[in-house]
Simulated scan of single mutants.
Amino acid sequence: MSVTLGPHTSPSDQPRSFKNFDQGLFQVHAKPPRKSEAPLIFDIGVNHGEDSEFYLAKGFRVVGIEANPILCAKLQERFENEIASGQYNLLNIGIWSEEKELEFYHNLDNDHWSSFDREYGCRNDTKFEILNIKCTTIDRLLSDFGTPHYMKIDVEGADRIILKQLQHVSARPNFISVEEYGFQAIVHLRELGYRFFYVAPQNDKSWAVPPNPAREGLYVERAFTGVDSGLFGAELPGSWMNFEEALRHFLTHVRAADGSFLTTGEWYDVHARISDPQLD
C-alpha cells in the first residue's frame, strides 16, 4: 500500500493525517493494517478528491497523495470524517526519483496542470506560482505501507518516474493505471510484468457504468465526468487486451508513434493488470 506526504505549509496548517519530514523520514497518523481490513488503494494525484470519494464510498481504505498544499487544506475539510476514522490518509507531498525538496509549479489558471515539471505546470502561458514541496519515493512509500490492490497514478509529468521506480520493488499492485504519455506507457507497464491492458477515454465516460452487483468493493451509483478517472480493476467493462493488441489499438486510436494525437477533445488513461481477467 502506498502513501505520500510533506507540505509547503506550516505544521499548524497541515492536515492531521501527516507530519513534516524529520531527517529525511516521514510519519503518518495511520493504524497498522490488519488482514481483516478492506483492501487498500493508492490515489496518487488526488486533486479535488473525486476519485478518493468514489473509492471510499466503495469501502476501500485509501491513501491519497497530493503535492498541492492549497488543495490538501480543502481535502482535509471534505474528508474530515474519513480521516478521523482512519479509512483515509491524506498526504501532502510529491513523489520523485529521490527524497528532496523541489520547486512545484502551481498553476493558477488550471490546478489540474500543476506539476514539478515546468513544461507541464506553466503550459500555454498560463499563470503560476512556485512553491517548495518536499518529495519522497514510491519505493519508500511501498516499504512503509505495503502493496495496494490498485494504484492510480495521475501526476502531471511524473507518471513515468513512478513506473521506473517500481522496477526496483518485488511486490507490485495487481491493478495500476497511468495517464498516457505515448505508447511508451504500455511498454513500461509491460516491462514491470503487467500482462493485460485497457485504454480508457477520460472525457467521454459513457463507458463507465458501475456494475451491479459490484466487482470491486461495494456498489456505488455514480455518473462519471471528465474530472474523475472512472471505473478501475475488475469493473472495467468489455475485454482486456494483451500487449500486442493494446499497442496496436493505442497507435491507431490514441497517438501515432511520433506522439501526435489521433483524436481531438479526448485524453486517455492506460490500465494494466497482472492477473488473468478470466479468473475474475
Rank of each mutant, 00 (worst) to 15 (best):
M1F: 10
S2C: 12
T4V: 05
H8M: 01
H8G: 12
D13T: 06
Q14W: 09
F18H: 12
F26Y: 08
K31S: 14
K31A: 15
K31I: 12
P39S: 15
P39D: 15
I41A: 07
I44R: 00
I44M: 13
G45D: 01
G49N: 03
E50G: 10
S52G: 02
S52R: 00
Y55G: 02
L56T: 07
G59A: 13
V62D: 01
V62L: 06
V63H: 14
G64I: 08
E66C: 06
E66N: 05
E66L: 03
I70F: 11
C72T: 12
A73D: 02
K74F: 08
L75T: 07
L75F: 04
Q76Y: 09
I83E: 11
Y88K: 10
N89Q: 15
N92A: 14
E101W: 06
L102D: 00
Y105F: 14
N107F: 08
D109C: 12
N110I: 13
S114C: 06
D117K: 11
R118E: 13
E119V: 13
G121F: 04
R123H: 08
R123E: 06
D125Y: 10
F128Y: 15
L131T: 03
I133V: 15
I133D: 05
I138R: 01
D139P: 07
L141H: 04
S143V: 04
F145Y: 14
G146V: 04
G146D: 13
P148I: 05
Y150V: 10
K152T: 04
E156A: 11
K164R: 11
Q165F: 00
Q165W: 00
L166C: 12
H168T: 15
S170W: 06
N174E: 15
N174M: 08
I176A: 09
I176W: 02
V178D: 07
E179N: 03
H188G: 01
L189G: 04
G193W: 05
A200G: 06
S206N: 14
A208R: 07
P211D: 06
N212G: 00
A214N: 07
R215S: 12
R222K: 14
G226A: 01
D228K: 00
D228P: 01
G230W: 03
G230S: 07
P237G: 07
P237M: 07
W240M: 03
E244L: 06
F250R: 02
H253A: 02
H253G: 08
V254P: 05
V254G: 04
S260N: 13
S260P: 02
W267C: 06
V270R: 04
S275R: 09
L279I: 09
